[in-house]
């Protein structure tokens, strides 16, 4: 339970930041609108990752799940930064 909790809380935080960054790079809105959307959606993503983490068989699977998702979202952001940068 503790390993799942750590995976959910820490992984959830990282994934939520990463997802917020993806929204920030992709949404065709003003900066203030993107910040506000991030402020509301971030918590929802974080708690949703916790749900997914707790649904794992064991702590290891939870870490693999959240780690994998984080790598995917971080990779997407890296691509976006590369594409956006002049």
């Amino acid at each position: 339970m503790w390993a799942k909790s750590f995976a959910g809380v820490l992984g959830g935080l990282l994934i939520s930041i990463s997802v917020m960054a993806t929204f920030y790079y992709t949404l065709p809105l003003t900066a203030d609108a993107r910040i506000m959307i991030g402020l509301i959606l971030g918590w929802i993503v974080w708690a949703a990752v916790m749900v997914w983490s707790y649904a794992s068989d064991c702590g290891k699977q939870a870490w693999v799940r959240v780690g994998g998702l984080f790598l995917v979202t971080a990779g997407l952001n890296a691509m976006l930064v590369f594409l956006v940068s002049p």
Binding site: W43, W46, A47, M50, V51, Y54
Partner: peptide, 12 residues
Amino acid sequence: FVTLAFLYTIFS
């Protein structure tokens, strides 16, 4: 963090 856990309990 208690509130975050509370949000998780709402979702679950």
